[in-house]
Computed example of a mutant assay.
Amino acid sequence: MDGPKRILAIDDERINLRVIGGLLRNLGHEPVLTESFTEARQHLDATIDLVLLDVMMPETDGFTVAKKIREIPEVADVPIIMVTALTSKQDRLKAVEAGANDFISKPIDLTELRVRMGSLLKMKESQDEVKRYQAELEEMVAVRTSALKMALENVKESQRTILSAHLETIHRLASAAEFKDEETADHIQRMSRYCALLAAKLGLPDAEVDLVLQASPMHDIGKIGIPDSILLKPAKLTPEEWVVMQKHTIFGGRILGDSNFELLRVGEIIALSHHEKWDGSGYPKGLSGEAIPLYGRICAVADVFDALTSKRPYKEAFSNEKSLEIMRAGRGSHFDPRVLDVFLNDFDSVEKIQREFEM
């Protein structure tokens, strides 16, 4: 644990408070000593790391005080240790129901106090770190999303006059989510052309093939809202980091959503659905089969192939043979069988695109 912690003690007996204060100082912590909940309430804020709470108090007993603490939003999750002479199962269950995390018996033993406080203070540190991380992430996403929304509003305005400039701006925005990693600089070029090839081979009209070509580069635009520490991590993500990474689909949908421009609407569909899987095990909605938009199913095949055959911070590039072996194993689970078959049956055209936009 880093540095001394602020420990709030509530006990109506001054001699008990003096003993507790001495023990806490001996352990290197800063005691905040109070004789009632009324007095303690003035000190209960986010700087308090743990509460030591006596059960037997004449004004308001410890069970009631614990419940009141849990009702205060800014300290609702602060660890509470009940200091009690009560030993019955019923009393301990009552304390847990009131919100206590642990118990320590009177008279207080220094070693027991250190051990019981230690685990709860580590838990509090972890909770505080998660809160700080979430706050920073939300602020960053809000700022970046706001900036991108403003940029896209300007793009929508320009569509009435200069379509080519509009498309170029969208491609530059898509590149903003990719430029951090030099190894993926050509990813959106290859991936968009793989998508267009699949769309054409699947029999989509020329206008839709062009839409897929122009919209697919926006599939990962939501990654601009993902912290670099996660996006560029040269190792396997933790479960918590993976939850954050998966949100790039939702961020992309929000950035591209609510547009009257067809290209952006298709981009939104692709951003939200390119990580869905045929068997329903994908994200963010767990769609399955033909409930997944066709554009997303097309993008899934193209995106995975390019990811497998490209170097990433966490892996080296796989050969085409190894990549196709992996993808065949995902036929009917990860990928729409029909779309994957079209991809495999015209792999010469895929390799031609691959060579044209080599890294």
Rank of each mutant, 00 (worst) to 15 (best):
250 I>E: 15
65 V>R: 06
292 I>H: 00
36 S>V: 00
78 V>W: 06
356 E>V: 08
178 E>T: 12
66 A>S: 05
42 Q>G: 07
206 D>L: 01
185 A>F: 14
172 R>Y: 15
12 D>I: 06
21 G>H: 10
279 D>P: 12
186 D>Y: 15
279 D>N: 13
65 V>I: 04
327 M>C: 10
151 A>M: 03
235 A>C: 08
238 T>I: 08
115 V>H: 07
30 E>Q: 11
95 A>E: 00
345 N>T: 13
193 R>F: 05
320 N>K: 10
96 V>I: 10
145 T>V: 14
335 F>T: 05
284 P>D: 04
50 L>H: 09
171 H>T: 15
57 M>P: 06
217 P>R: 01
20 I>F: 01
268 E>Q: 02
249 T>H: 13
71 E>K: 10
30 E>L: 04
159 Q>R: 13
160 R>D: 14
101 N>F: 00
238 T>D: 05
354 Q>S: 13
20 I>N: 02
270 I>E: 00
208 E>F: 05
260 N>C: 12
269 I>A: 03
178 E>R: 10
131 K>W: 10
116 R>M: 11
139 E>A: 08
187 H>A: 03
162 I>E: 11
129 E>A: 12
325 E>W: 02
219 H>G: 05
2 D>Y: 03
24 L>V: 09
11 D>W: 03
80 I>H: 06
302 A>N: 12
15 I>S: 13
199 A>S: 06
126 S>H: 14
334 H>K: 15
253 G>R: 05
225 G>V: 07
156 K>W: 07
219 H>V: 09
346 D>A: 13
161 T>P: 03
210 D>M: 14
210 D>G: 05
343 F>K: 02
276 E>F: 10
152 L>V: 06
272 L>A: 04
